[in-house]
């Protein structure tokens, strides 16, 4: 079988359009994961031991089961309880929750890396817990979390093709559709791979640079 350039050019616009959907899915999913993950991390730092254990187990569970199964679970189980979710909403929830579990571990590591003396200083200045988190602890914990966060940003992007299984119209879904319509798989699937490469490689590099810059800006470079 030979690579057909005219066919390539013909399907490229459709794939590029779908790339937009892929990027959007990654961005939304990551946004949900960032917020939810912080909640999961903070929930493990309350004085309530039972809460910590439950959240810990939950995070472990999500991290050690396949995302694709979680996507199916959210998409098909919600209607059983009378909530019908669109593929997009179900997909964002599943991928957001999955990566929230990963990000919560990253945040936790970052929070634990902040010196205990910082809490003591915050107490000695009578700053409240919420204020101390927001202004003192999180700004120091985040730079330590950035490399891990960046890796998972690239990770979430690469996992978005799984959303195609419930019909989210991202890249993989579009490539499949093209394959089904034309019986040509070589070009669409190869292009999808190339598009992922052209996004994820520079993204990984960008994450590395952002980390350095943030550290410098926060005065954490010795």
């Amino acid at each position: 079988m030979e690579w057909k350039w005219d066919f390539t050019l013909q399907i490229l616009p459709r794939l590029i359009e779908a790339t937009g959907a892929t990027l959007m899915a990654a961005a939304f999913g990551y946004l949900i994961a960032m917020v939810l993950g912080l909640g999961l991390a903070l929930a493990q730092r309350t004085p309530y031991g039972a809460l910590t254990r439950v959240v810990r187990e939950g995070v472990e569970f999500i991290r050690s089961t396949p995302l694709i199964l979680q996507i199916f679970f959210v998409f098909y189980v919600a209607p059983q309880f009378g909530v019908t979710l669109s593929p997009w909403v179900a997909g964002m929830l599943a991928i957001g929750l999955h990566y929230a579990a990963y990000l919560s571990e990253v945040y936790r590591g970052g929070l634990e890396s902040v010196d205990r003396g910082q809490w003591e200083a915050a107490t000695s200045l009578n700053l409240g817990t919420a204020h101390a988190y927001r202004r003192i602890i999180l700004p120091q914990a985040l730079p330590n979390a950035i490399p891990g966060m960046g890796n998972y940003l690239v990770g979430i992007l690469k996992d978005t093709p799984m959303l195609s299984v419930i019909g989210v119209g991202e890249l993989m879904h579009t490539a499949n559709a093209i394959g089904a319509e034309t019986y040509r798989f070589l070009e669409p699937f190869t292009l999808v791979g190339l598009i992922f490469l052209t996004i994820s490689l520079p993204l990984a590099e960008l994450v590395r640079r952002a980390e350095t810059r943030l550290r410098r800006k926060l005065g954490l470079v010795k």
Binding site: G117, Q118, E120, A121, P139, Q140, L218, G219
Partner: peptide, 8 residues
């Protein structure tokens, strides 16, 4: 003893 200034 260790100052505990806010480094950022």
């Amino acid at each position: 003893q260790h100052f505990n200034l806010f480094p950022h």
